[in-house]
Each structure stands twice: as C-alpha cells, then as structure tokens.
Design a protein around this nucleic acid. Structure first.
Lengths: 258, 258
DNA sequence: TGGGGAAATTGATCCATCTCAAGGCAGGAA
DNA sequence: TTCCTGCCTTGAGATGGATCAATTTCCCCA
C-alpha cells in the first residue's frame, strides 16, 4: 500500500491523438487499426514498432451485461477498450458489489499481478475491444521499454485515482460523493465557474450506487436534492446538466474549489 | 480507473532477501547499504548496476509525527523505507482524513504522476529512509528497464490492494473491516486454521479508524467485541493475538474462507 | 400509439455507526 | 511515588443513510 509513482511530466491520460486522414489511400495505419490510436500506449512507440503491437490484437464486440473478465480466472488476455464503457468490480461472497471504476475508450485492462485477474469486468453498454494474448504482450513489453514506461505512467495515474476514491468512500457524505462523481465524469476536469456542462451517464443508478458505496435510493434522492438546490438539471435519468460547477466543486471537497 | 496489470509470475511484494554476512570484511555491499537490499527493486538489477543506485541515495531518520511528503508539493524525491512505518493520507479541506495505506520496510513511495505528490506521508514511529533525487532516479529508470519493469509489478500490486480497500470502504461493515485489517497486517496471509498469531500494531486507534473509514470509538468497540467472541486477544492496545483465523477470514469476506 | 416491464423516484421507518461525554489506564516528568 | 497527559475504552443518545414499500417514469417493442 505504498504511494504513487512519478516518471515524467506527461499527464496520466492524455487525450488520444486524432486518427490521421490518409486521403482515402489504404496506407497501413497501424496505430489506427483496432482503435490502437486510442490507446495511451500508442504514442510511446514508433509506427513501425506499432505494427507489431497491432498484429497481436483481435477485435471483439461485447453486448451489454456480458462479463468479459472474471475475478480469479487465469489472466490470459489484456484488453483495450475502443468504444463503450465497462464496469470493473469486486464481489463479496454474499453478493455485495463494489465497482472500482468505469473503463471507457482508450482504457486498457486485464494486466493483473500474479496469474489471475483481481477484479471482474462487465459491459455497461455495447462495447468494442481489442484483445491481446498475454504471453505476446509480455514479450512486447520486454522488447519495447518505452511501452512499459508508458504503462507505468498509466498505472501511477490509476493509483492516484484509487487513492482519491478511497478518500471518497471512507470520508465523504452522500452529497459530496455524488458531486465528486459528476465532476469526475466531466473530463477534462472543470475547475469552477458557471460553465454549462452536459453529461451522459451510460451506467444505471445501481452502478453509480455501487461505485460510490451508497444505495440506489440515496443516489436518487441526492440527485433530486442537488436539482432542487439548482446545482444540476436532470434531462431524463442519464442526462445531467451541471449548472454551478463552482458550488459543486466546493461540495465535492476539491482542494482548490473557489 | 482501469484495471491492474500483470507482467509475470513474481509475487507483488516478495520478502526482502537477507543481507549476506560478509564475515566482518568491509566489502562493498551495494544492495546492503542504505537498506537497498530491502527494496523490492533490488533483485531486478545486477550488483554492479546497483552500486549506481546506491550512489544516488542519502539516508535519513524521521521522528514520529513528522510529515515528510506533503500532498501538492513538488515531487522532487523518491523514498525507500528502511525501518519504521509511515502513514499515507489525503485530507479534505475541513480536516477529515483518509489514510490510504501504511508503508513499512521495503516500501518505496513518492514517485507521483505529474509534478507533485498526490498524497501526504507522515512517520508513525521512528523511521529510517533513503532519499533519491527525482531527476537521477528518472535517468536510472531509463537506463535500466529491468528496474522499471519491477516498479510496474509493484504498482500493479498496489493497484490490486487499492481495489480491495475500495471494496472494504464501500461495502463492508465495521466488524468486517476490522477483521480484514487484522488479517492483512499478518503478512504473509494466513488462510485459515487455529494458528496462533501475534500482531504488533504500531499505529494508533485514530490511524486505524482513518484507514478503515470508521471512528476511533467504533474501532475500539469492534475490537472489544471480537475479543468477547474469543476471536482475538488483546495484550495492551498495540498487541493483538489472532485466536481463530478461520472465523476471522470468514468475517473479513475472504473468497476462500473456510 | 399504446402496453408492459424494468428502472427510477418518493415516502416511512429502522438501525449501524457517529457524536458527545465520562471514566480508565499507562507511561513520562518531577 | 504521584501527578499529568494522551490514548483508549465504555456508555447514552443522535442521525445519515439503509431498508422496506409504493408509485411514477422511461423506453422498448408490438
């Protein structure tokens, strides 16, 4: 349980480079195929080396609700999310669930410590992923230290996010948790100010509850209260508009709120 | 918030190699000096290369209560704990604290993503640490991919531990949290059975409470109840004896309890 | 366009944990 | 030794969020 790791100045999750338009020519675009352009690993390698990375991958679509990573199963694959969202979670023997995160486009997952996965992953909505066989991935990481370096940066970012989530789960009130969640969904982070921001929440109330350590009812009531306080507006269950990010930041407990 | 990362079959936190006794000769023992032998990084490098690692380090002792890493401060150093224990924590503006982990001998910390630390660290008891200047460390990681590889393994282990802690904070009862905490302190993990295990807890009730997302009083009451149920014995506030690890595992919600 | 089932909201009550408060104990200073 | 201070334990009462229980809304599909 030690700290996070700093390696250089790159942001943890840079926005993916746009796929270059190649004027209709069928030029090999290794980073573009299989959505690899969207992997943050991508810009760690030169294009000629990336071709090898792409060769490893097979694409796959996943229907909502399908569990594609099962905790304790042998970790034989590594996934890159191309589109859609997955929920990552752990279960207690009696069925209580904690969602440890949501993985959207660009996220990669499945490289566990030890021989088996330490969490399960299930599609929230329709997903597209690339699958990489583990042994090949391990060899590739060995051959390209730059990729491994990038992976360490990403892991360090995840670790910082995990610590932030521990603070939320251990010490924040329901109102603070929901405010934090909404602001975190608005990437890039909105510091403060009356910017109108509209969010789409692909996950259900049940998912949000299990992510925030609350119940469905508390999440719903808290959203209703935030609406009554004119901090947010609800356009159906999965569209949220942030009306006062300044106040929301203050509620969320952001260090640099006002 | 994506998953954890698997790179090979090594355990996440191997027990440190013993420092070889060199029969009193003042032979250079690079891995041994500055407690580097206790770094899990150590066995990733050959001894001649380790000499360079050791050259970077300066040793330091830290008094109980001293904050030696401050959240948001520029991350200019990297620490390796040689002896003693540190608490790693994050604060909310109003002073609420979440301890995200305890770092004992062999743990290294401080390599944050981005330019500043994402958490604070404070000595629980008397500590000895090695300090590594960040720029030199970055260069060293670049020169020795094996060290970086090892660091990624460690980070992956931390990430799995963080997910486990999220499950605890989000979904476990006070009794389950305390049982989980006690079992986790007993490294290596005790699966089940009536083994008599004695634990030393260097941290205060307040630390335990802030680590488990509870109050001091609840921690104390819960320990008292576990004692009344003959699952543990208390020999003073900081000595705990586990009487029935089997049942404790079941309470903690271990997947493979009985 | 309307019907049906799942998801979300809302309400009433309960309870695990927090809060407030009062001792108890152990270790250090004089 | 005795006081003193800080931590820990124990008790009594308060409460935020959980639980139980209806509706209501959404949205998919005929």
């Amino acid at each position: 349980m030690a700290g996070t790791y700093q390696l250089n100045q790159h942001p943890a999750r840079p926005t993916a480079r746009p796929i270059p338009i190649v004027l209709g020519l069928p030029v090999p675009e290794p980073c573009g195929s299989c959505g690899v352009r969207h992997m943050s690993l991508c810009h760690a390698v030169e294009d000629k080396d990336l071709a090898r990375l792409v060769d490893l991958a097979t694409t796959d679509t996943i229907r909502p609700g399908r569990v594609f990573i099962q905790e304790h199963d042998p970790a034989i694959e590594f996934f890159n999310v191309t589109s859609g969202t997955a929920r990552l979670f752990k279960l207690l023997p009696d069925g209580r669930r904690q969602i440890t995160g949501f993985a959207g486009p660009g996220h990669f997952l499945g490289l566990a410590v030890g021989p088996s996965y330490s969490f399960s992953a299930e599609a929230v909505d329709d997903m597209k992923v690339c699958r990489f066989p583990r042994p090949k991935m391990v060899r590739l990481l060995h051959d390209f230290p730059a990729v491994e370096h990038r992976l360490l940066e990403v892991a360090a970012g995840e670790l910082a996010a995990a610590q932030e989530q521990m603070l939320l789960l251990g010490r924040k009130t329901a109102r603070e948790r929901v405010a934090s969640f909404l602001l975190a969904r608005a990437a890039p982070p909105i510091p403060c100010g009356p910017t109108e921001t509209r969010l789409h929440l692909p996950m259900s109330r049940s998912d949000i509850a299990d992510y925030l350590g609350l119940t469905i009812e508390t999440v719903s009531r808290t959203l209703t209260r935030l609406k009554a306080d004119r901090l947010i507006e609800l356009h159906g269950p999965s569209e949220v508009e942030l009306l006062d990010t300044c106040q929301l930041n203050a509620i969320a407990g952001a260090e640099f709120a006002v």
